[in-house]
Design a protein around this nucleic acid. Structure first.
Length: 328
DNA sequence: ATTTCTCGGCTCCGGAAGGC
DNA sequence: GCCTTCCGGAGCCGAGAAAT
């Protein structure tokens, strides 16, 4: 058992209510008494008991986050940013990779203040939760607010940028699974972008990775390169793009000299690749910021007006080159 | 089966002490 | 005697264990 305010009270020779006030910097405690209590607390290694605090305040200052997987770099980056953003507001984060229903159930028992559900596919029925839930990505049951980013626009921007560089033979390598709306949005963005720019359907290639891990991207790119070599590729996620990069290198080709590459997922890690990747998508700092802003609104019991869909940004680094330069 | 107690921390209310 | 300052005790919170 850890040190409690009762232990400190005994050691400091005051009552525990005085310790409580001193620790909360209450003006009702004499400065000398306060200083003595703080010194004793520090010496004894006192750490406040969150469970006890939440009993009184009816708040745990904890957010439950339902996460699909911890294995993808893109998601770890977002989880880190969300945690940073929560810390700014003195909140803690509990992460669960359980299925949505059981995670929501456990979080309610832990008495979190709100739950953020990162959903890659909509849950089949209504969730039982005493605390507010915010969905990110795939909309949940209609009664729950959803926060989203403009994936379609992101991929479209990538197509337009590659077009400006002179590319006409462009591949999109991503998860094309029909059930996953988020991934479908990216595909639609690619198709719309190509159509708007009158790219020949025979030159635009879509390759299904059947997954979002780097291995999925690697295999899909490897198979594609056996058959054809586009001048540019758009990877459907950061992890997929990492796989594509490996496959391109294995095929004795160079990015960007032989093939330009743009990755979906606007995360800082993209800059650490060789070469640093040009990326598209909403910056994860902005995603985390907007997400937590919406969550805190829900916690305050205020109604959430329309949550804005975050626009994407293209970050140009070194993985794309002008087609003229390749030819020259 | 029902009631009481326990955990740790917070807050309200009131008592003790001291100054005028 | 009154007022202010400082501190202490009771009660509360929720869930589960222990007692009845």
């Amino acid at each position: 058992m850890g040190v409690t305010i009762k232990d400190i009270a005994k050691a400091a020779g005051v009552s525990y209510s005085t310790v409580s006030k001193a620790l909360r910097d209450s003006p009702l405690v004499k400065p000398q008494t306060k200083q003595k209590i703080l010194t004793v607390a520090k010496e004894m290694g006192y750490q406040p008991n969150i469970a006890a605090k939440s009993l009184v305040s009816k708040k745990s200052n904890t957010i439950g986050v339902v996460w699909p997987t911890v294995e993808r770099d893109a998601l770890s980056a977002l989880a880190t940013k969300i945690n940073d953003e929560l810390e700014k507001h003195h909140y803690h984060m509990l992460l669960s990779i359980n299925p949505i229903h059981s995670a929501v159930n456990v979080f309610n028992r832990f008495q979190v203040d709100a739950i953020l559900v990162f959903s890659e596919k909509a849950p089949p029925n209504v969730l039982q939760s005493a605390v507010p839930i915010l969905f990110y990505g795939e909309p949940g049951p209609s009664s729950y607010p959803t926060f989203n980013v403009n994936r379609r626009q992101a991929v479209k921007k990538a197509v337009e940028y590659l077009y400006q560089l002179g590319h006409r033979k462009i591949a999109y390598i991503g998860d094309l699974t029909k059930q996953n709306k988020n991934q479908q949005e990216k595909l639609i963005g690619f198709q719309e972008g190509c159509k708007d720019l009158h790219l020949s359907p025979s030159d635009t290639i879509t390759v299904n990775t059947n997954g979002l891990n780097w291995q999925d991207g690697y295999q899909a790119a490897e198979q594609m390169l056996d058959i054809c070599t586009p001048t540019a590729i758009i990877g459907g996620s950061y992890d997929i793009s990492v796989g594509i990069l490996r496959a391109v290198k294995k095929a004795q080709l160079k990015v960007p000299a032989d093939i330009s590459l743009i990755s979906y997922d606007n995360i800082p890690q993209s800059a650490n690749q060789d070469p640093p990747l040009t990326v598209t998508g909403a910056p994860i700092e902005k995603i985390a910021e907007q997400m937590i802003k919406s969550l805190l609104t829900l916690i305050r019991n205020e109604s959430l007006e329309d949550i804005p869909t975050l626009d994407s940004e293209l970050v140009i680094r070194n993985s794309c080159t002008s087609l003229r330069m390749i030819e020259g």
